[in-house]
């Protein structure tokens, strides 16, 4: 028997698939459109929450991106997906500090963190792990260990003479061997994860501190 004998005409098959695809498309687009606003609100709320924990007293924030010419520009809309830093202002409108996000490979997976930076004193003043999948009980201490987080209370991030990079490379050192203001005392038992945070901070500070210092006047005024 010819196996194709019972095949319905291909026109009908195509029409049917088209109808099904159309129906599916309508459902997907409806779901996408209705959830767009709540998702954006959620993301903004989480970002604000993290910023408030890093810089208490924060009331307003402006996202700055870079133009191809190396100038800064204010990003309107959703800054995610573009390289940016956040300038954070207090109630009175004066600059409270800078926050930027960075990522680095840790022991198990990518670690994403946020750093707070005080441009006047040229110091890193806070660190929060935003995304952390390190080994529970060991590597994930870099997000909670008070001793480790104390490293970032006033970490030296001075610019060099020329102003195009850091005076001292920031790095994590083995637990208990921290000697300088720009070193991070690693969590014992989580040296690899701690070093990843060190590399993440060094790289992102090299990237942003020269830009911020160069445009500090503009950032202070918030335009």
């Amino acid at each position: 028997m010819n196996p194709r004998a019972d095949l319905p005409p291909s026109g009908r098959l195509i029409r049917l698939m088209a109808v099904v695809s159309l129906l599916c498309g309508v459902i997907i687009v409806a779901a996408h459109k209705t959830t767009l606003e709540p998702i954006r609100r959620n993301q903004a709320a989480i970002s604000r929450e993290n910023v408030a924990l890093l810089l208490p007293g924060a009331s307003r924030q402006i996202a700055y991106g870079l133009t191809p010419a190396g100038e800064i520009e204010i990003l309107t809309g959703d800054p995610a997906g573009r390289e940016h830093f956040l300038a954070v202002y207090d109630q009175a409108g004066s600059l409270r500090g800078i926050v930027w996000e960075a990522a680095e490979r840790g022991y198990a997976d990518l670690i994403r963190g946020m750093f707070a930076y005080d441009p006047e004193g040229q110091k890193v003043t806070g660190f929060r792990a935003v995304e952390l999948k390190e080994t529970p009980g060991l590597g994930d201490k870099i997000g909670t260990d008070p001793g480790f987080l104390a490293n970032f209370r006033a970490l030296d991030a001075r610019l060099n003479q020329v102003g195009d990079g850091l005076a001292n490379a920031i790095r994590a050192v083995k637990h208990g061997t921290k000697k300088n203001e720009w070193e991070i005392d690693a969590v014992s038992g989580a040296t690899v994860s701690s070093r990843a945070v060190g590399r993440m901070l060094d790289r992102s500070a090299r990237r942003w501190t020269p830009v911020i210092q160069r445009h500090l006047d503009r950032v202070r005024k918030g335009h």
Binding site: M17, V20, I28, T35, N42
Partner: peptide
């Protein structure tokens, strides 16, 4: 749905609802 295209139809329908649930979870809690 004719039996020749039923699996394709099912997969389309399932993928649609998975996309919906993906967005709903993202909207409920990041």
């Amino acid at each position: 749905v004719p039996k020749q295209v039923r699996i394709a139809t099912y997969i389309l329908i399932i993928a649609t609802f998975v996309t919906v649930v993906d967005y709903v979870i993202k909207a409920a809690s990041i």
